[in-house]
Amino acid sequence: MRDSPYLAILAVFVPLSLLSVGGGQAVLPEIHRQAVLSHQWISEATFLADYAISRMSPGPSSLIVTLIGFQVGGALGALLATFAIFLPSSLLMYALVRVWSRTRGARWQRAVERGLAPVAAGLILASCVTLLAAASGGWMVPVAAVASAGLLMTDKVSSILIVIGGAAVFLLVGN
């Protein structure tokens, strides 16, 4: 290949960063199309394994790009892909919060903040449904999720303990 794989990584992931409205999941189909179909960097099976790994690993699931970047260009490729997907959108957010913090407390600004709150609430509730639908593990998943929410809302049980507890219960009860 004559062209640098690093440039190709940037050319694919920088635009996707700015297209990922609604979160990283929004561009997952496009990542698949680019990495597997157009550039043929990785096979379908590798993509699915990458997806599974990024789902079961903690943190933002967009980190699938770290794995793809590694498969295309080693450690440097992994770093480039990660920063390419996060940096452009982050700069945009940074610009917004700067402008927002400069003019504080104007009436229109309070209206925007208060007006966006119920939109955010609706999106949060929707992502509960999406996350539950995407999770594998059968009937125990919604039960455990609601139980974990109940425990969290007491503010008395540590977050990590709840996650370890979830893993332990699933392991003990089985399917």
Binding site: A135, G137, V141, A145, V146, I164, G166, A167, A168, F170
Partner: peptide, 21 residues
């Protein structure tokens, strides 16, 4: 199976936030 359990418990964080908000 253990990871499924960890994921299920993690979804609880979103639900708790959804209820509060």
């Amino acid at each position: 199976r253990a990871i499924e359990g960890a994921v299920a418990a993690s979804i609880g964080f979103m639900i708790a936030m959804g209820v509060r908000v």
